[in-house]
Each structure stands twice: as C-alpha cells, then as structure tokens.
C-alpha cells in the first residue's frame, strides 16, 4: 500500500532555527495520526508543508502530488481546520456556504446544511458574532461536507470549552471518519485524542523522536513503578526515563520483555502524555 503522505529528508529552517531537521515519515490511508510535540517543535511547519503553505527542502508527496506546486488541486481532496481564528469575521454563515459551494467541486451543500441543523447557528449571523465553539462547529460542518481523503487538524479545539472539545471528536469519528479517510491531528491536549488515534508521532526540535502505531506502542513501551529497594535492579534493564512518584520510582522501557519488568513492580502501558514527556526529555536532557 502506498502512503498518502510521504516525507523524506524534509528540512526547513527559519534563520538558524531548524523547524524541520531532515524528517522522514509516511502516513497511510485510513489512519488517524496524532502529531505531538512541544511549542516550536516543528508541528505546524510540518502541517504547513503538507498543506503546501510552506516550501521545504527534501521530498514531500501528498496524495502523489507536490503540495506547494499543486496546492489548489490538492485542496480538492485535503481539508484543513486550524484553531478558531481563521474563518473571516465579516463573512456570514450563508455566505460561507455559498462560497465553498461555489469553489469546491466536492462540497455537498445539503450535508453541510444538515450538520448545521443540529446547531444553534443562524444562517444570517456574521462569523464574528458567533462563539468560538460555534465557529468550530461551522468549520467542521463545512469540512465534513467535503469528500476529502485527508483532513488536517491543527489544534482544532484550542480555546474551546470541555463540552465542545468532547463533541468535536465524537462528531468527527461518527460522521466523518471511515477507512477511506485519513486524519492528521496536532494538539497539546494529548489525553483528549489518545483514545481515537491509530498512530502517533512525537516531534521535537524538528526531528521525529517516535513514530508508532498505537498497537505496537502498547507492545513496545512499558512503564514500571518500583519501590526504592528495586531501583538499582530496574536501572540495570536500561530505562529511557526515570521519575520519582510518591515514594516510588516510575521507569519507562522500550522493547524490554514484560515478564522481566513484572518481577520488579507494577507494569502498565504508559499513557501517551507520560510517554511523550519521558521521550522528549530523554532525547533532550535539560
């Protein structure tokens, strides 16, 4: 199966800062991929590169196209939601529908209307008068009415309250996602998306420090919580991270057999957020 997105040696620097430092990755069709990294790690640069919004050196192919050169064509099959700020405030809701219907060959106005029926959004309202949650609902309604193959979400729930954040992802999963479609999402709210991801990538200082499917992640990464008397023993097995926690020590391992860790203490699959913190600080010790 050929990858929907394929990056080889992707590089981008702003002055002396390397936003992307020779990045390789593939995104297969039908996956929900989380791209997770601290601020300034290169997440947004990677997304912008995929969307054809920024030039990078190296090879990048999205749906078999060069995203910068073929951006307009590519956008027929790629959709994008950033945080709430990008819909123009002066635009009215019905104008937004008219506009997308006018320029997008794969947009179904009926679908968008039926999504909007479920919301409180009035057609005549200016986007500037809507709440952040409603703006996101509107953007989501526009996007979900497009027959796209790749959906890119950049911090889509930033600034939304808990209720909207929860429904955002449920709607997306229930009404949008299927085997034909692929979602690439970045967020700080790792916990929020952990359960919907099929794949995860950690990016830090312009480099991919982890790229796993959630299935293999659970097999390869383990954390064990040990009592002080076992710490030396545990260290001998080569953990990549060690954190004191309420009198015990939590250590994380990669590719260490579960049976050997079970002898030392309580073994668990690490949460994505914990793994992220451990992985990123291991790569770049403070």
């Amino acid at each position: 199966m050929s990858a929907l997105v394929s990056a080889r040696g992707l590089r981008k620097h702003y002055g002396r800062v390397h936003a992307l430092d020779g990045v390789n990755f593939d995104i297969e069709a039908g996956r929900i991929v989380g791209l997770i990294g601290p601020n300034g790690a290169g997440k947004t640069t990677a997304l912008k590169a995929i969307l054809g919004l920024t030039r990078c050196s190296g090879e990048l192919s999205v749906l078999g196209r060069d995203p910068v050169r073929d951006r307009a064509r590519l956008m027929q099959e790629v959709c994008f939601i950033a945080d709430t700020g990008i819909l123009p405030r002066w635009l009215r809701v019905h104008q937004a529908l008219d506009y997308v219907a006018g320029v997008h060959p794969r947009f179904s106005r009926e679908r968008a209307e039926s999504f909007l029926e479920r919301t409180e959004i009035r057609r005549k309202a200016r986007i500037g008068t809507l709440s952040k949650g409603m703006i996101t609902q509107l953007h989501l309604a526009l996007i979900m009415a497009i027959e796209a193959r790749l959906l890119v979400l950049d911090e889509p729930t930033l600034g939304l309250d808990l209720l909207f954040r929860r429904t955002f992802y449920t709607t997306l999963l229930n009404d949008y996602f299927d085997e034909e479609r692929t979602i690439l999402v970045t967020t700080h709210q790792v916990d929020e998306i952990e359960h919907i991801l099929t794949d995860v990538m950690f990016i830090d200082h312009g480099a991919i420090v982890l790229d796993e499917s959630m299935d293999t992640l659970a097999e390869r990464y383990l954390q064990v919580s040990v009592n002080p008397d076992r710490v030396e023993q545990a260290r001998a097995l080569g953990p990549f991270s060690e954190q004191p926690l309420m009198g015990r020590t939590v250590l994380m391992y990669q590719d260490t057999p579960r049976e050997r860790l079970a002898e030392l203490g309580e073994v668990r699959t690490p949460r994505l957020a914990d793994l992220f913190v451990a992985r990123v600080s291991a790569e770049h010790p403070a």
């Binding site: 919004l53 307009a72 064509r73 590519l74 959709c79 990008i86 819909l87 123009p88 405030r89």
Partner: peptide
C-alpha cells in the same frame, strides 16, 4: 485577520 489560511485551504489557486 489570518483568514488567508481558510481561503487557501480551498481549491483556489493564488
């Protein structure tokens, strides 16, 4: 107003 990101996310060339 950053709406250029929205306009450019649609299949319309520059």
């Amino acid at each position: 107003d950053r709406s250029i990101l929205f306009w450019r996310s649609l299949p319309v060339s520059d």
